[in-house]
Measured scan of single mutants.
Amino acid sequence: EESQDIKALQKELEQFAKLLKQKRITLGYTQADVGLTLGVLFGKVFSQTTICRFEALQLSFKNMCKLRPLLQKWVEEAD
């Protein structure tokens, strides 16, 4: 059922947002740094506010889903 899928996805997004924040802090990056690095990787800079709202799960579900693969890549590249 679709609502189950969405619930599962939301849970996954929550966990990912936590992971992103932990990783960012561990590596000593600011939210603005992450936004700028996305610009380098994908040619589209994201504001500190956007990263902040992603981490706080304050973006729309659709936006969270759109941003996630980009931030996933950041997490992979950041090591």
Rank of each mutant, 00 (worst) to 15 (best):
L71S: 00
D79T: 10
Q10T: 09
D79G: 07
Q4G: 11
G35Q: 11
N63H: 09
Q72V: 06
L9G: 10
G43Q: 06
E12Y: 05
T30D: 02
C65K: 08
M64R: 00
F42S: 11
C52Y: 03
L41P: 03
V34L: 08
G35A: 15
V34G: 04
Q4W: 10
S3F: 10
E14M: 07
K44L: 00
L67V: 06
N63W: 01
W74E: 10
E2K: 09
F42P: 02
L19G: 11
F61I: 14
F61C: 05
T37Q: 15
F61S: 04
Q10E: 06
G35P: 05
K18T: 13
T50L: 02
K18F: 08
D33Q: 15
L57Y: 14
L38Q: 04
K7T: 09
A56R: 04
E2G: 14
A56F: 04
K62D: 14
F61M: 12
S60I: 07
L20D: 00
Q58K: 11
P69H: 08
T49P: 07
F46T: 12
V34Y: 03
F46P: 12
K18C: 08
L9Q: 13
V45A: 14
F42T: 14
C65I: 15
K21Y: 03
K44T: 14
A32H: 04
Q10R: 14
Q4A: 10
E14G: 11
E12T: 05
E76D: 12
E14W: 06
F61R: 05
P69S: 04
F16Y: 05
A8P: 15
L71M: 08
K23A: 03
Q31Y: 15
I25C: 07
G43H: 02
K62Q: 12
C65V: 09
R24G: 00
T30A: 02
L20E: 07
D5G: 07
L27P: 07
V45D: 07
L67Y: 02
L67A: 03
L70T: 07
V34A: 01
L27W: 09
Q58E: 14
Q72K: 11
I51V: 04
F46G: 01
A32R: 13
F54W: 01
Y29D: 05
E14H: 11
K7P: 10
N63Q: 08
K62C: 04
F61T: 13
D79W: 00
Q10V: 10
A17R: 01
F54H: 06
Y29T: 01
V40M: 10
L27M: 09
Y29V: 08
D33P: 08
T50Q: 05
K44N: 08
S60N: 01
F54T: 13
L70A: 12
S47A: 06
E77L: 10
V45T: 12
G28R: 03
R68K: 09
I6W: 06
E14T: 06
V40I: 12
T50E: 14
Y29W: 04
F42V: 14
E76R: 07
A56S: 12
L13V: 08
D5C: 13
F46R: 05
Q72F: 03
G35L: 01
Q48L: 05
G28L: 01
E1Q: 13
V45S: 12
V45H: 12
L36C: 13
C65G: 02
Q15H: 08
C52I: 11
G43M: 02
D33H: 03
L9N: 10
T49K: 15
K11F: 02
I6A: 12
S3L: 14
K23R: 13
D5H: 10
G28P: 00
R68G: 01
G39E: 04
Q72A: 06
I6K: 15
E55T: 01
K66M: 13
F54C: 04
G43A: 07
L70G: 03
L57D: 04
K18D: 04
Q31A: 10
L59P: 07
E76W: 05
N63E: 14
Y29N: 02
T30R: 08
Q31M: 02
G39T: 03
Q15G: 12
G28E: 00
T26R: 14
Q58D: 11
E77N: 15
M64S: 05
L57N: 15
K7F: 08
K62A: 12
K7D: 13
Q4D: 12
K21C: 03
I25H: 15
L57K: 05
R24L: 00
V34P: 13
Q72Y: 03
Q10S: 10
L38M: 14
W74V: 08
L57R: 08
L67K: 00
K73V: 06
Q48A: 14
G28W: 01
Q15A: 14
R24K: 02
V40F: 02
Q72D: 06
Q4N: 08
G28C: 02
F16L: 10
I25W: 06
L57F: 13
D5S: 09
G43N: 06
Y29S: 01
S47K: 03
T37Y: 09
I51M: 02
E55W: 03
K21R: 09
F54N: 03
T26N: 15
S47D: 07
A8C: 14
T49C: 03
C52Q: 15
A32G: 08
Y29C: 02
D33I: 04
V40N: 12
E77F: 15
D5Y: 05
T49Y: 07
C52W: 07
Q15S: 10
Q22A: 09
F42K: 08
K11L: 09
A17E: 15
S60R: 03
L57I: 09
Q22V: 07
T26A: 14
L13G: 02
T49Q: 14
K66L: 13
D33A: 03
V75R: 02
I51E: 03
V40E: 13
Q22S: 15
Q15C: 08
A78Q: 13
L57W: 06
V75E: 06
G35W: 01
L71K: 05
D79C: 04
Q58G: 03
L9M: 14
V75M: 07
M64C: 01
A56L: 08
F16V: 01
D5V: 12
Q10F: 13
V75T: 07
E77H: 14
K62L: 03
E12F: 15
T26L: 12
F46A: 09
A8R: 13
S60Y: 00
V40T: 15
E12W: 08
Q15L: 08
F46M: 12
V45W: 09
A78I: 15
A78R: 07
V34W: 02
E14V: 13
R53D: 11
L13A: 03
L38P: 02
Q10Y: 12
Q10G: 08
L70Q: 14
E77S: 06
F61W: 11
K44E: 12
G28S: 01
L59N: 13
A78C: 06
D79V: 13
S3D: 12
A78D: 01
A8Q: 14
D5N: 13
F46N: 05
L57A: 03
V40C: 15
R68E: 05
K23E: 02
L27C: 12
Q4L: 11
M64P: 03
S60F: 00
W74T: 11
A32Q: 09
V75Q: 08
M64F: 01
S3Q: 15
T37E: 15
I6D: 13
P69M: 02
F16A: 09
K7H: 09
K11Q: 13
L36P: 03
I51A: 00
F42C: 13
L27R: 06
L67P: 00
R68L: 08
C52S: 15
F46S: 03
L71A: 04
